[in-house]
Design a protein around this nucleic acid. Structure first.
Lengths: 235, 235
DNA sequence: CTTTTTTCATGATCCTGCTCAATAATTTGT
DNA sequence: ACAAATTATTGAGCAGGATCATGAAAAAAG
């Protein structure tokens, strides 16, 4: 099965449309492909990056999911992001060449490993690749700043509704069902990310279940009324 | 005085150490300088960017300050960032070539105008410039994600203390006093940014004044006890 | 399969920060 | 310089969500 993994190339990766490879012509993609390594899958709870470690690779998620977090001075975890297939992990380390956060697999997760040195070499020769990297960072930057506003002035219910909608959209973009999906993170993770207590997450999920907006069964979520969820999120 | 403004070059700009020009050698800086335009100062309340408008320039703040915000579907302002001298404005527009937010001057503000097309041309020839742009974006990205966590799980007092400390640091980096500075934004702006009501901002400022952490006189803030402010922020 | 650990659900209580309200101080416009 | 508008301060009351506590359900470990 290792042979299967190692035989997947950018050219036929289903995630390439979201990835750094998106705007490249076939020839460029082949060149990108040659510098990319595959590695054996991460198991649940395995760490991909550690804060402070020197940056060697950027990672593209092929399947599975991760959470990115920092530890504050008191050692308290602060979740910064969740990563789904097609997402890139490691941009925050470009600033000074060291990772600034921890990334941990939430389930069995497969990745592409992109050596930053080679990527930089390639970027200097390929304007399209350079622009794509800028675009991805710019998008992430805006999304992150937008999120700040989205969360700050909103109620617990609005935050959670927004979170579920965003997940739904992201699954849909990845060719998966946006109606029905599995939360790979715990309620505590969601609460941490949204600045709410576990209890609040639990209570709101129950309430949304009761009023028919969602069907929740453990980690499985089904969106019963997208309209209602949208209006709860305030969109 | 217009002649004075137009005669300032990257080579002798006091902000160049924070700006995109930071790592460039003198020759490169001169080349960068030739593509940069100066323009007449923005007056308080003037808009620099408008959401939806095509991206033509990135801007570097030379003096003064701005706020960046979006308008939600109900037309409610959501402040995303404050910009001080040395900051770059416009990175969020690189993703699709259109500005995604409004930037408004909080006071009389001078700017450098950097045409993105020329900047991109230059970046393709100058690896150092390219890397610096990536670094700046990466830093901003991490700062923004970090901020999310910093705000989310913290009390009103911790948030405001954190905000003031960040401002203080930024002023200090810019060669200004970090002990004593002027808030160019209103209390309402701060509240909007931190997800707190104006009243809460006002009350906490009064409380910090009473307990001797700060001296506040209208827009003027003096940090009386940095230690105390630090411990309030939870650092 | 059984035991242990982790995660989730729900209730009761409390407190932080919001809303509403009234006044004062600054800033802006004429 | 004055009037109007915006911004800031302070108080009272209320409510959303945190915390504490307990039990149930899943998941992980053995």
């Amino acid at each position: 099965m290792a042979s299967l993994t190692s035989h997947i190339h950018c050219q036929d990766c289903s995630m390439s449309s979201l990835c750094i490879a998106q705007p490249l012509d076939n020839d460029s993609m082949v060149r990108l492909d040659t510098i990319i390594q595959r590695r054996k899958p991460l198991q649940k709870r395995d760490l991909l990056t550690t804060a402070g470690a020197p940056l060697q690779f950027l990672y593209a998620v092929r399947s599975g999911s991760l959470k990115t977090y920092t530890l504050d001075d008191k050692g308290v975890e602060q979740i910064i992001d969740f990563h789904l297939p097609g997402d890139l992990v490691g941009f925050d380390a470009l600033a000074d060449g060291h990772h600034r956060s921890f990334s941990q697999a939430l389930e069995t997760t497969m990745l592409c490993e992109i050596p930053v040195q080679s990527l930089d070499d390639l970027a200097s020769q390929m304007p399209t690749l350079r622009k794509q990297m800028m675009k991805l960072m710019s998008s992430e930057l805006f999304a992150s700043k937008q999120l700040l506003g989205d969360l700050n002035n909103r109620s617990a219910q609005q935050r959670l509704a927004h979170f579920l909608l965003t997940l739904s959209q992201r699954f849909a973009e990845r060719g998966l069902s946006g109606k029905s999906f599995r939360l790979t993170m715990t309620r505590a993770d969601i609460g941490n990310y949204l600045g709410l207590s576990v209890e609040t997450i639990s209570r709101i999920l129950s309430a949304l279940q009761t009023d028919g907006t969602l069907a929740v069964k453990n980690k499985l979520v089904e969106i019963r009324s997208l309209d209602q969820l949208n209006s709860l999120a305030g969109h």
